[in-house]
Write a protein that binds this DNA or RNA. Structure first.
Lengths: 189, 189, 189, 189
DNA sequence: AATGAATGAGTATTCATTCAT
DNA sequence: TATGAATGAATACTCATTCAT
């Protein structure tokens, strides 16, 4: 028996939402997966929408926290700061099951509330910060930040997605090489 | 009044599936958007699942057709062949409303049938072909093809998504620069 | 097969609400009684609350219409005007199954909307009009109008309720005698 | 902290049942109002139905007891015996919150058991006794007893209901005048 | 061929009741 | 004895699909 049913529910929802999407997942299915009664879910979340938003925000929070751990000093080389972002996101993707897939496939969803959208933007801002600084230093291409973010974030999402599904095997050194690729995509040549 | 109701239905479904996803879209909503009766949809598609699969396959087919137009000769430089892929996909993304978003957000969906999955793989194979050739020629990084595809494809999906939502404005020359970036991501330095 | 499913649903709801009350009646039960599918109810009424309010307002409207038929001239003797009210309500109670019971048992319900409450007040105002006029003419006791209404209306509701349940048999002449009693209750002696 | 949780529960249930009805009241709501845990209710009452029946019977018992207090001798004038009934019921309505409203709105409910129905009939019999005696003495109209009871009881229920909701203000002397009206309704003229 | 009203299986949510603490 | 978290059956409501017109 689990100590914390709220966490069981969130964990079950994460897995199912990542696999079938919010609308493709029924509440009883979540309850089954979490090994709780259907009614129990409503003791912790007012309704299904509150549940996704809670989950989304919790995931973004964890990802943000991960990104804020062992942050290189602001004076550190952009290259190093970029590496930090890449490997921290990668670390989170590895640590928390399907969280990145869930975030990526739901971050535009119409049922996300203002708060969820804001937190997601704040997460992107962490990447934007490094990219903007890199542009100022002339290290990163002078393209719109959103374009640069899209490339790096889009690549990473697709990559970790493939690793989860098994389409891509994580071998030693692969991540470092991919990080190099992502950096090459946006750096000034 | 439209000549071809089947196309009206597919067009309506494309827009709605891209925005709200398959499970978040009701058949009557598609009918409304297509300006046909709900029952009419079932004259053209046996059920909702057949509809998505038809739409998915039609989109992939169009995208594939676009990719097969004005193909550079197999002997052409890899750089040129990569450009062709990038700009053809880009062309398709611009031409057909939300098609790329729809494809990207549904290509892992559990309701896609064998045929749909196969066609999607064949589409990826077109990219894989150039990448593998590039690797053989020593022009492209010797990483797993799926990793390279993920980066290029993931970046493009995210990019065109942002352009649709307005988060990124398409200015003259931007596309060419982004293409350069994508190439830089995977080329040997 | 019925021409008008909306009416079937209202009729079924009337009977069930009168017998078991709004909260004691399930929507599927109404559907069964009306011989329609459960979903059909929602084609005609947005939800259960809209259904009760529609029914309530329709009943009040019919009752009001009945009260407005063959109205004695304003100059007619109060006694005659009182009789008109009594016998019209009585007529309605006899004509429309459980309508009066339904109205009486739901007119204070928390789910009635503003419009329903207003219409009920307007119905009471029809009684109030005669009573106030009677008080001015010195024919009816100088008590608060609401007290006089309560007595007459309360007595009638209880009476017709008993007739529906069979606790009181309607014999020739009985109604006229009861009307006399009600009049005696409020007239000046 | 209360001495008697059972009474707290009954008191809470009385108020809520009177306001929203049995089916419109949830057990946890009763528990909240009574300031006890939801489970506690089941220590005192086997289930919700047993709870209403207990409450109903308790109320009827109290009302009956009130009616049996200071009863005029059987030989007393009918007028006096009628007054006793009216003022005792009135006294009870004033003393015990919403008891009369609760009784009136639930006395036909399908969930009342045989015993509850019997006790309610016994209560009505107390009124019937005076009315029948009055009819024999030629003081009260020779109408079916149920009709006479309906008028008097129906009027009183409506009256006290209005007083509770504030639609009718209780002023000195008003009750006596209303009693007179009720008597006038059924007496021989 | 086209429609949209009708259906009922399926989904989100509530609530009487239980039971571990 | 008292609690309130947990349950799952029951309820309101939705939606893919059918079919009479």
């Amino acid at each position: 028996m689990s100590k914390n049913k709220r966490m069981d529910i969130l964990e079950a929802a994460l897995e199912l939402f990542a696999e079938r999407g919010y609308d493709g997942t029924t509440v009883p299915t979540i309850a089954d997966q979490a090994q709780v009664g259907a009614g129990t879910i409503y003791r912790y979340f007012a309704n299904k929408e509150v549940l996704v938003n809670s989950l989304f925000q919790e995931c973004i929070q964890q990802l943000t926290n991960t990104l804020m751990t062992n942050v290189p000093p602001a004076a550190a080389p952009i290259r190093e700061r970029f590496k930090h972002i890449f490997f921290r996101i990668s670390e989170y993707a590895g640590a928390r099951g399907q969280a990145l897939t869930f975030i990526a496939s739901h971050s535009d969803a119409p049922f996300l509330n203002e708060s969820s959208r804001e937190m997601f933007e704040q997460f992107l801002d962490l990447i934007r910060g490094v990219i903007d600084e890199g542009k100022e230093q002339g290290m990163i291409c002078p393209l719109p930040s959103n374009a640069l973010i899209a490339m790096v974030y889009g690549a990473m999402v697709q990559l970790f997605n493939m690793m989860k599904t098994g389409a891509l095997e994580e071998t030693p050194g692969l991540l470092a090489q991919i990080e190099e690729c992502c950096w090459n995509a946006i750096r000034v040549h």
